[in-house]
Simulated scan of single mutants.
Amino acid sequence: MQVDSDDPRPPYVQVADGLRRAIQSGELAAGTKLPSGRELANQWGVALMTLQKAVDLLRSEGLVYSQQGRGVFVAATDDQPRQLNVRALQEGLDDLRRRLEAVEQRLDTADKRRK
């Protein structure tokens, strides 16, 4: 996967088109986490900002979504089960629950020290 310098399309469009084809062919299935931005930029031979612009384009098309601190994932399409998105949401909620419990424990500990 490399950008073609003879292609008249901007590099970010070439990257987005390549990733879109992989998503539509099922090579990148719904719920799949994309490699990191740096990894994809290296694979495609583009700058990180170019890769981010390509991902932003795919996000605007609803083909991928981001989860803060977790990465970018392939979204389910109409012909793919939405269960994968539900699973991703559940994992996000579980992570938030664990983080909230840790914060509550720290607050309880701090409160006990003050008494």
Rank of each mutant, 00 (worst) to 15 (best):
I23A: 03
Q24L: 14
Q24S: 11
Q24Y: 09
Q24C: 07
Q24M: 13
Q24G: 05
S25R: 11
S25W: 10
S25I: 08
G26E: 12
G26T: 10
G26H: 08
G26L: 12
E27Y: 10
E27W: 07
L28N: 08
L28F: 10
L28G: 01
L28C: 05
A29K: 14
A30D: 07
G31Q: 06
K33A: 14
K33M: 14
K33F: 05
L34Y: 02
L34D: 03
L34I: 03
L34A: 01
L34R: 01
L34E: 04
L34T: 01
L34N: 04
L34F: 09
L34H: 01
P35T: 11
P35A: 14
S36V: 07
S36T: 15
G37D: 12
G37A: 08
G37K: 05
G37E: 06
R38T: 07
R38A: 12
E39F: 03
E39C: 12
L40K: 04
L40C: 01
A41N: 06
A41P: 02
N42Y: 09
N42M: 10
N42D: 14
Q43N: 14
Q43P: 05
W44M: 02
W44P: 01
G45F: 04
G45H: 02
G45P: 05
V46A: 01
A47R: 12
A47W: 05
M49F: 10
T50L: 04
T50A: 04
L51H: 03
L51T: 00
Q52C: 09
Q52P: 02
K53F: 01
K53Q: 11
A54F: 00
V55W: 03
V55E: 01
V55D: 00
D56Q: 12
D56H: 10
D56V: 05
L57Q: 15
L57N: 13
L58C: 06
L58I: 03
S60P: 05
S60Q: 15
E61V: 06
E61D: 15
G62C: 08
G62D: 12
G62P: 08
G62K: 03
G62A: 07
G62E: 09
V64D: 03
V64C: 09
V64N: 03
Y65S: 13
Y65F: 15
Y65N: 08
Y65E: 07
S66G: 13
S66D: 13
Q67G: 06
Q67N: 06
Q67E: 12
Q67L: 09
Q67T: 09
Q68R: 15
Q68I: 10
G69Q: 04
G69I: 00
G69R: 06
G69M: 04
G69T: 05
R70N: 07
R70I: 07
R70W: 09
R70K: 15
G71Y: 00
G71Q: 09
V72H: 06
V72S: 06
F73P: 04
F73I: 02
F73R: 01
F73N: 08
F73M: 08
